[in-house]
Design a protein around this nucleic acid. Structure first.
Length: 287
DNA sequence: CATATTTGACCGAC
DNA sequence: GTCGGTCAAATATG
């Protein structure tokens, strides 16, 4: 509303902002209900079957030949740091131990393990793969939680965010909601174009910040108004005088092949700031 | 020198 | 056989 405030259409602005807020809250409630009702998001709740569940729940049937080593996986999407070739630092020290070309993917997947694997026996690993669609985005899959103790102030500062991203169940307080939305299921959808259309039954929900600012918006702020130094989100570049204009939050919503940043939503709604699309239907946009 | 990255080989699952 | 994940020797970096 702040961002749209300069417009002449105050009432419509209020209406749109209200609709955005309402639908966003409903979406989050839906997502959290999925994540909180089960074991880390790996199984789907029977109480809320999807129309597509009959076909896509099949992979979740217990199979005797399935590998026995079930490991915790969480996938997040992060943007590259300052548009570089590497995702923003997550606060942990990783050592690359492999890289593979993945069938059907444009970019190779990098394999990292915790630097302290040998010294502290930390089993945490992660896989980083540049998204096919957006070169600035990386799909990062965290496998197993860190058991090591990070040292150094930088790691301690950023590590809080990283630990939260990787072990949300242990993170109390205001971040719980956000982190519960970063849960990734087993059997993840691969490349976006390979995922089924629409709100696929197997679609992993992932609400994540896309900016390098990390995972912890200040508690007193709304979860959707995290401060950021990133330049690839938010209002027009002209709004450089920081706090004079409201900025769009650096969050994206990912559901299988559906992905958009909230900045995109607002942009789609208003086009250039202060100019509305009168025929835009936010309900159909979210649907 | 210690530590990190690269990259082909290797291995298990399918 | 293919594919994805890991190993480890060679190489790079500070």
């Amino acid at each position: 509303m702040l961002h749209l405030g300069g417009s002449q259409a105050q009432e419509r602005c209020r209406l749109l902002a209200s609709q955005i807020s309402s639908l966003t809250e409903r979406s989050i409630a839906l997502i959290t209900s999925y994540c909180s009702l089960d074991d880390g998001g790996r199984k789907r709740p029977a109480a809320a079957p999807s129309p597509l569940s009959a076909a896509s729940d099949a992979p979740f049937k217990p199979t005797k030949k399935r590998r026995t080593t079930e490991r915790v996986k969480r996938q997040v999407r992060v943007s590259s740091a300052a548009g570089g070739d590497v995702p923003a630092d997550d606060g942990h020290s990783w050592r690359k131990y492999g890289q593979k070309e993945i069938l059907g993917a444009k970019h190779p997947r990098g394999y990292y393990r915790c630097t302290h694997r040998h010294t502290q026996g930390c089993a945490a690993t992660k896989q980083v793969q540049r998204a096919d669609g957006d070169p600035a985005l990386f799909n990062v899959v965290y496998i197993s939680a860190h058991t090591c103790v990070q040292s150094g102030s930088a790691a301690a500062a950023a590590g809080q965010a990283a630990a939260a991203a990787q072990a949300p169940e242990h993170t109390p307080g205001a971040h719980t909601l956000l982190h519960s939305l970063t849960v990734k299921t087993e059997g993840l959808a691969a490349a976006p174009e390979e995922a089924p259309q629409g709100w696929a039954a197997t679609a992993p929900f992932c609400l994540s910040p896309t900016a390098a600012s990390g995972w912890c918006p200040a508690p007193e702020r709304s979860p959707f108004s995290a401060p950021s130094t990133s330049e690839n989100w938010g209002a027009s570049p002209a709004t450089s005088d920081s706090n004079q204009h409201a900025s769009f939050p650096p969050f994206e919503l990912v559901a299988g092949d559906v992905q958009f940043e909230f900045g995109e939503v607002v942009s789609a709604l208003v086009g250039v700031p202060g100019e509305f699309h009168d025929d835009f239907d936010i309900s159909s946009f979210f649907a």
